[in-house]
Amino acid sequence: MVRIISALILAVTAACASAAEPLQLVDNPPDRHIVVRGDTLWAISGKFLQQPWRWPEVWQLNKDEIKNPHLIYPGDIIVLDRSGDTPRLRIAKPVVSRDEKLQPKVHSQTIREALPSIPPNVIEPFLSRPLVIEPGEHDTLPRIIAAQEDRMLMGAGDTAFVTNIPDATVENWQIFRPGKPLVDPETKQVIGHEAYFLGNAKLIQPGAPAAIRLTVAKEEIGRGDRLLPAPPANIMAYAPHKPEQAIEAKIMSIYGGLREGGAGSVVSLNRGSDNGLEVGHVLALFRKRASISFDENVRRVETPVPEERYALAFVFRVFDRVAYALVLESSKSVIIGDAVRNP
């Protein structure tokens, strides 16, 4: 299926009068780019702009248009126009020669798909995971109380019985097990629990108890495991863009229980939708540095120096007080406690 495209026609130009910092082209940008299957918003932007997330400024798109950008298709040509004071992007369609004779052709219509913001194979495993549960929420969620034929453990294809699913308004569910607490590095308070994803299930019969069928089982599932409604997996079309308001956050954890991460790592942030974060936001990672020296008494002296910006991250899932981001570019290891702010 032709992967078509949307969004980004993108990125490529220079400054907008209202921008605080002029946009800059990369060194020796191409004059044009032919859109092909497999292109991503981030990759095409990076062919032209030093700051790929700033492409909406070129088109002067509003917030809603950023989420649902204009469609382009494979074969369309993105042209860098430098004839004016400010470089611009335009789309050129293939031109048919006047001498070319028109012949009968078979036409087919392709299904339109939004151009993914970043490589799908990187982000898809995390579209519905990880999960964050608010403090005290565990006891109110649906819970597996029994399995068919009194089994202790279950896998894909098995049927389970669940409490607290009163009707059939939600058909698709995620199964999880309570996991480690997420502690805000600034306040030291628990702002949620990162749940351990076990699998997916489909409601087959509402009631008390309700019956579900396990459709995916990453690990064995048993009595006491909880359920949450599965979120829609529609984030791929959201275009990278910087937050409109100032964001001040910290890295709380690196997904998978790692101590350090890098490009391709998923990190949790101690800010969420309550603080204005949304899917598609691009944020920069910063680390405080200190110059270490010794005085005349051979005492260690640390002199603070300006923070070092070393990475960019793309927010792909947002909860009330927690967000998850994929580190796209990083010049060094990502460490828990590092600062996260507007790029």
Rank of each mutant, 00 (worst) to 15 (best):
V2M: 06
I5A: 08
I5H: 05
S6E: 13
L10H: 04
L10V: 08
V12M: 13
T13A: 15
A14S: 10
S18C: 13
A19L: 14
Q24R: 14
N28E: 13
R32I: 11
V35A: 09
V35E: 00
D39W: 08
T40I: 10
L41S: 11
S45P: 03
G46F: 07
L49E: 04
W55S: 10
Q60E: 07
L61C: 00
N62V: 02
K67R: 15
N68W: 07
H70D: 08
P74S: 13
S83T: 12
G84Y: 14
P87C: 14
R90N: 04
P94H: 09
R98M: 11
D99K: 08
E100M: 15
Q103N: 04
K105Q: 15
L115I: 08
P116H: 13
S117G: 10
S117C: 11
I118A: 04
P120Y: 10
N121R: 11
V122T: 09
I123P: 00
P130Q: 08
L131N: 03
H138P: 00
L141F: 10
L141G: 01
M154W: 08
T159Q: 06
A160E: 07
T163D: 00
D167K: 05
D167M: 03
A168P: 02
V170E: 04
P181N: 03
L182V: 09
Q189K: 09
Q189N: 08
A195V: 09
N200V: 13
Q205C: 10
P206E: 07
G207K: 01
I212M: 04
E219G: 14
D225F: 12
R226M: 13
P229M: 10
P231N: 03
P232Y: 03
A233N: 09
N234V: 15
A249H: 07
K250W: 12
G257A: 08
L258V: 01
E260M: 15
V279S: 04
G280E: 09
A284R: 09
F294M: 13
D295S: 10
P306K: 02
E308P: 01
Y310W: 03
A311L: 08
F316Q: 00
R321K: 15
R321G: 02
S331H: 04
G337M: 07
P343Y: 09
